[in-house]
Design a protein around this nucleic acid. Structure first.
Lengths: 342, 342
DNA sequence: CTGACAACTGTTAACGCTAACATAGCGCGC
DNA sequence: GCGCGCTATGTTAGCGTTAACAGTTGTCAG
């Protein structure tokens, strides 16, 4: 059962070629389904390869062919829930292109992003999908000089290196402000993350304030958090804020998770939502379906972003454009049950 | 600013060597901090490399040195919440070992696992961490012949290929059954996933039934689901089950997410938890902290599993053992607020 | 002043595979 | 039956890096 020369020397094409009595080149052709090989030879080779348990060495293959079937995907976090969704869409879309996503995580740290990017580029991937358009100068330079398709995702507010697929978080915040004001709310609080490097949350915040300002409204209260379970934080912050500023009639959360925590608090406190107080989050997390009330939110088009980004690196973009494509998607307000209808 | 010969020819060591007037070998030594290089030379080389924007080619490096700093991590899903935790611990632990995790996702499909494993092994990683101990015969053969450390994680109920780090899901189920019976509950329902390939959920179920049987109890009702938002499914299934079998006094869920959905239903329905009906889940998800009641659950030691597995592939296991290490961790019951105290 | 040794740098030959070209055999039209 | 063109296979020369070894200095003890 075990192979004859089990000296733990790793198997190479040569082993398969000797076992099947053909040249290495022919084995290579069989295993890659490339070029003409007779059926009998093919079968002989496949049998030998299987018997030996041969696994091709892509390192050597990539070096020789100057082609690597990897796409670097660089995201800030895996625990955010948002990114796994995007990832899985990228993965689906890449499925039959022969490309394989490889994930790097930056924990929202620019230096870590730079380092991860360097590491990934040193494997010479055939494309990069990276979250956000803010990078260190060095990282940006690497992206510019890599000579491969680069797609920056999630955010379109700014200048990208090459292609960009995302939404305007600024406008997302602005639209939410308008919807809230239109529903008649006036005393509005904001609850969000403290992370200075979460540019998208920051832009939503800025857009939101701007939207309120257009109606002569300023935020009545704000609170920011860092770390911990988002749901619990949402509950705690909501309680604290409502104690501090009892006359608030709306709370806008920078993400659905803390929003849900806030919603739980309001329910437990017996507050009339959305009558006395309205709530909204951001992201359109499917995870949260199942609560008694559906939190108002805004779908960030995560799935579509992943799909489009993957198409671009795979060179399958419908537009047929070669690079520098910018796709802005429109987030859709999902009013749920926590904004008053008029 | 842009490099002189910007013919988009990818940069190699030779470019840096020419730019700095030393041999390729010396450049290589500088960039890897290996061997003796004079300070002046080192500086010259570093300056040239930076100016050119050179990024080393690990493909060539790996081929030449026969060393690859990658660890393959193969998990069933990223949306399960359980795996991102494990992943991040692995990542932390590997941080300063020079090893880099590369993630593959199987979607709980054995064939997909086989395929992902093949793909990863073809990059000749220096170790494999893989969830579960059930694999296709081909996958198992690959793991056995890879000639690198293999750590199977999450589950210890069965025979591993090499090292194993996890908990006994069978005993976890059994202990939960005992705790529930000890608390005086007798009419017990089970709600879980339909996935036949989720072996760990299956083992918990089996262990749970066994634990009940020891007290002469059999499950009063069961329900299984597949797909959809777990929280919403938990709510729906709970409602359905309680309508069908109204005299149930305990519901055991195969994971915390559907458990939380069930808890929300009970709260909304005004049921007395844990007085009239008790609830428990599994995993010890931190995510759920923030609900009004804390769901009884069992910590699956995810963090510790990730840490230990990473130590083993990094050759840093405290035991100093070379392979075939089996570490069984003890899941801890977290009674929360949804099991009656007596 | 010689030989031993350290510190630094260079040369050569892989690593395992594939692109590109070369060759062998065979059928087939005329 | 000649050569054309096809299919099936083999040969050669890298791909960009590093291991192993080979200089080439300079220092220093004896």
């Amino acid at each position: 059962m075990s192979r004859p020369t089990d000296l733990r020397r790793p198997l190479t094409l040569r082993d398969v070629s000797e076992a099947s009595g053909v040249s290495e080149m022919t084995v290579s052709r069989v295993l890659r389904n490339r070029g003409d090989v007779s059926d009998t030879t093919r079968e002989k080779v496949l049998r030998a390869a299987k018997a030996l348990g041969y696994v091709p060495n892509k390192i050597a293959g990539a070096l020789a062919s100057q082609r690597v079937n990897l796409v670097a995907v660089i995201i800030p976090s895996l625990s955010n829930l948002v990114f796994p969704t995007v990832l899985s869409k990228i993965s689906d879309e890449l499925e039959d292109t022969g490309l394989q996503p490889v994930v790097g995580v930056t924990n929202y740290k620019p230096e870590k992003e730079e380092q991860v990017l360097y590491e990934m580029l040193s494997w010479r991937p055939s494309g990069v999908i990276i979250a956000g358009i803010e990078h260190t100068p060095a990282a940006r330079a690497m992206l510019e000089n890599a000579g491969i398709p680069v797609v920056e995702i999630m955010d379109v507010d700014g200048n990208g290196v090459d292609s960009v697929v995302g939404i305007s978080h600024r406008r997302a915040g602005l639209h939410m402000a308008e919807a809230i004001v239109a529903a008649g709310y006036r005393r509005i609080g904001f609850l969000g993350t403290k992370m200075p490097e979460d540019h998208r949350a920051r832009k939503r915040y800025e857009g939101f304030c701007e939207g309120l300002a257009q109606h002569g409204i300023t935020l009545a209260d704000t609170e920011f958090y860092a770390g911990g379970s988002a749901l619990a934080k949402g509950r705690e912050m909501t309680e604290a804020m409502l104690k501090r500023t009892p006359d608030l009639d709306f709370l806008y959360y920078s993400n659905d998770m803390i929003g849900a925590g806030g919603m739980l608090y309001c329910t437990d406190a017996g507050l009339d939502v959305p009558g006395k107080i309205g709530l909204a989050g951001f992201n359109g997390l499917e995870l949260l379906h199942g609560f008694s009330q559906r939190l108002a939110t805004m779908d960030a088009c995560r799935g579509e972003i992943g799909r489009k980004a993957a198409q671009i690196v795979a060179g399958r973009s419908q537009s047929g454009q070669i690079g520098g494509e910018v796709i802005e998607l429109e987030p859709v307000l999902e009013p749920g049950d926590t904004i008053r209808k008029r």
